[in-house]
Design a binder for these strands. Structure first.
Lengths: 185, 185
DNA sequence: GTCTATATCAAGATAGAC
DNA sequence: GTCTATCTTGATATAGAC
């Protein structure tokens, strides 16, 4: 336990996340992270040559965790088409204080240079593709993905004007969109 | 033209927007704004006692402009229920380089303290209420609002994995949701 | 209402020793 | 691979003159 020399990188990302959780996004600085990770700033910069690299590391960690959560929830659901959508919704919209704080902090950091997120476009594409494989047409699949993301974003930015109960009903509605066949065009 | 002494505040907000557009969000500093507005930093700080106040001014300007655009587009549409939704979608999803840059910059600035956005929750609520007045049920109205916002956010963060053509089809789908009656519950 | 000058502070990054 | 020391820059904000 006390020995984890194997991967200082992971230790540093742990520390960075803890800085955000304990001190807030504004204090995500190289100094703070180094301090929390019990490394010097020089040491930190050996593993992540600059702050952008550290942010990339943090983003990757989050994307990985989200995907793990999705797989995990999917495994617990009956093996049918709709489950793919439900697993996605549940993992993304999970109200986890910790995860949300991290997401906001990363958005804050990343908003200064949205290009940092381009590599994750394909993750969203994959989600839509997976929805399509359940028999949904592309437009409907994309709409569901967008509504879920919209809910998530608004929640993160404290923009969501709904009660918890309303929120639940809306989520049901969104999931329900996967059942209604679109009329032919 | 050369005289606009009446409202230095507006001049300063103009300048702040131009700083963002010309230099990027990262350079939205009091120095840069003062320079662009041809005021000293002291002068700027007389009108906006701190940076947060300036951000509030910028946010208000944006919300106002968006609302104006919505009213304007609504006036050009036939006077029926669906037009409310179309006007909303068109004004929010308009691909205006200028507006989008400003939105990203403000998100970047504001993400550090999402509480700043709480005052604008009610704007979103109003949108949903207006949709409901067209005969839509609440859940469906909210879903449409969320999908539109999701599209907007993802686009701002360069997360949208669709082509322009796909994007158009998806927007049609979202608008179409206002026509399909939800089955009773 | 607007200016100059300055205080204060903290950030990211580099260089080079160990 | 990790450390210390330092450079450089640039930010918000205050004080007080005009």
């Amino acid at each position: 336990m006390s020995r984890h020399s194997g991967n200082t990188r992971e230790t540093i990302i742990d520390a960075a996340e803890n800085v955000v959780l304990e001190l807030g996004a504004r204090h995500l600085t190289l100094d703070a992270v180094a301090g929390k990770a019990k490394v010097s700033k020089g040491g930190l910069l050996y593993h992540f040559p600059n702050k952008e690299a550290l942010l990339h590391g943090m983003l990757d960690r989050r994307v990985t965790r989200l995907e793990e959560s999705r797989q995990q929830k999917l495994a617990l659901l009956p093996h049918n088409a709709k489950s793919v959508i439900i697993a996605h919704v549940r993992s993304l919209l999970e109200r986890d204080e910790r995860t949300n704080k991290l997401a906001v902090a990363l958005l804050a950091a990343v908003a200064h240079d949205p290009q940092l997120l381009v590599p994750y476009q394909k993750e969203q594409k994959k989600v839509v593709d997976q929805f399509c494989q359940t028999g949904l047409n592309f437009e409907r699949a994309a709409t569901i993905m967008l509504a879920v993301q919209g809910l998530k974003f608004m929640e993160l930015f404290s923009l969501l004007p709904f009660t918890t109960k309303e929120r639940s009903r809306i989520i049901e509605e969104i999931i329900g969109l996967s059942e209604q066949k679109k009329h032919a065009r």
